[in-house]
């Protein structure tokens, strides 16, 4: 194995790194080999290990440090590094002893419950508003046709007028109900979010206090 072969193999094995990371590592070890004046690939292997051993050592360091180190450097975190991190996190979640998947499930259930309740309260308001509008619309229509029918057919005309007034009354009665329902729901929702906010903040503060007492590290 020549020294060129050694580095060709090392370059191939460092494929998981980004081009910049790979170039930096290769350059460092090429520099090293040039300064050490190794005769051939065998001498390089004796000092640095086989290309595979060296590549594993470099990659192992990246798998732990890549996210913090490259971002601290001010360089952009590569998409590949991000993808790697996401996979690591997914694997960590899947391999975590139940607690994290269960927490995610509970969170998803709570979110679903929240969505259902908000959809129901929106539906209630829409139905009330719909009833109110329908009442006023029916009332307008019946009164309008009643006025004209009174002239040709007084009995039918009067009953239309009566229907119109009744529908109008029902619609008007529903307006305060609608207002009351809207205000009630709004205050319940506001109270819920205030509660949620307080709970989250308290948990965070408790966590901070615990950390301050040195319980977490």
């Amino acid at each position: 194995m020549t020294i060129a072969d050694y580095f060709a193999e090392l370059t191939r094995l460092l494929a998981p790194l980004t081009a910049a990371e790979r170039t930096e590592a290769i350059e460092y070890f090429q520099d090293y080999v040039a300064d050490a004046q190794f005769a051939d690939g065998a001498a390089v292997t004796a000092e640095l290990g086989s290309p595979r051993q060296l590549a594993l050592k470099i990659l192992a360091d990246y798998s732990i440090k890549s996210s913090t180190a490259t971002s601290a450097d001010g360089e952009k975190v590569s998409p590949r590094a991000n993808a790697r991190q996401i996979w690591t996190i997914v694997l960590a979640i899947l391999s975590a002893p139940m607690a994290i998947p269960v927490a995610i499930m509970i969170f998803a259930l709570m979110l679903a419950l929240l969505l259902i309740v908000s959809a129901l309260s929106a539906a209630l308001l829409i139905v009330l508003a719909g009833l109110c509008l329908t009442g006023l619309f029916v009332s307008g229509f019946a009164l309008w046709s009643g006025i004209w029918l009174v002239l040709s057919d007084p009995m039918i005309g009067v009953s239309y007028l009566g229907l119109g007034l009744a529908a109008g009354g029902a619609g008007v009665i529903l307006i305060p109900v609608l207002k009351w329902a809207a205000q009630g729901l709004a205050s319940v929702w506001a109270a819920f979010f205030r509660w949620l906010y307080r709970k989250i903040r308290r948990q965070r503060q408790e966590a901070i206090q615990r950390c301050g007492k040195g319980f977490c590290k």
Binding site: Y28, D31, Y32, D35, E47, G49, D61, A69
Partner: peptide, 26 residues
């Protein structure tokens, strides 16, 4: 530079050159 640094540390401590690269990079 990398090689001289490794030699200097290896005078006292038994450490492989491949260990020092990640340290320098970090």
């Amino acid at each position: 530079y990398g090689y001289a640094l490794t030699q200097q540390i290896q005078e006292t401590i038994d450490i492989s050159p491949s260990t020092l690269y990640p340290v320098l990079r970090r």
